[in-house]
Amino acid sequence: MHFVEGDFQAIWLTARLAGIVTLVLLVLGTPAAWWLARTGSRWKGLIGAVVALPLVLPPSVLGFYLLLAMGPNGPMGKLTRHLGISPLPFTFEGLVVASIFYSLPFMVQPLQNAFEAIGDRPLEVAATLRASKLDSFFTVAVPIAFPGFLTASILTFAHTVGEFGVVLMIGGNIPALTRVASVQIYDHVEAMEYSQAHHLSAVMLGFSFLVLFALYALRPDPRRRG
């Protein structure tokens, strides 16, 4: 297969973006999912809905609002200026922030399901053995919910790789900085370089299939366990 140099740049950039976003969301999403799974608060419905929003919002809506929010007159733009860091649009960091919003439900929802499936009993047992809450979380909940962590991480990574609209709107299409694989493919198509678009698209197709195959093949199947 024939690749131009920009293709490798774009693949490496995409992998880095998806990897960082997955790690950040593991840290941010786990407590959020835990709270959603165990709370009896009347805010649960509201927070759950906000977390799920990126599932249904068109990427153009998310991209448009992020562009306004991150701009010099937007709340995030004012915050970054106050903190003395450079504005987020057209930067790799900006893509990370945007992707955290975009992929949030793909981390939180599988984790929440996994935590809910644990039920109260194992944690009550741990409490009677005088395990602290934090202790029982790491020694009881995390091991039981491990398949949930795996699913959530794979989905988050894959969904971030598949991001296009938001990146196109706030990235500025800068080589090696914000031109991810999906945008690179779009550029190939627009410039009528169809064979190059084919090659990179085939890589994306193969990757996406392998990820989902791994996800479904690795997932413990209760019927097979019998």
Binding site: P72, G77, G172, N173
Partner: peptide, 20 residues
């Protein structure tokens, strides 16, 4: 310093929002 808009209207949007 260049950032690239998808078409001329999108380019206008990047400047109008003050991001460029």
């Amino acid at each position: 310093k260049l950032v690239y808009g998808e078409n001329i209207a999108h380019t206008a949007q990047l400047v109008q929002t003050g991001n460029a």
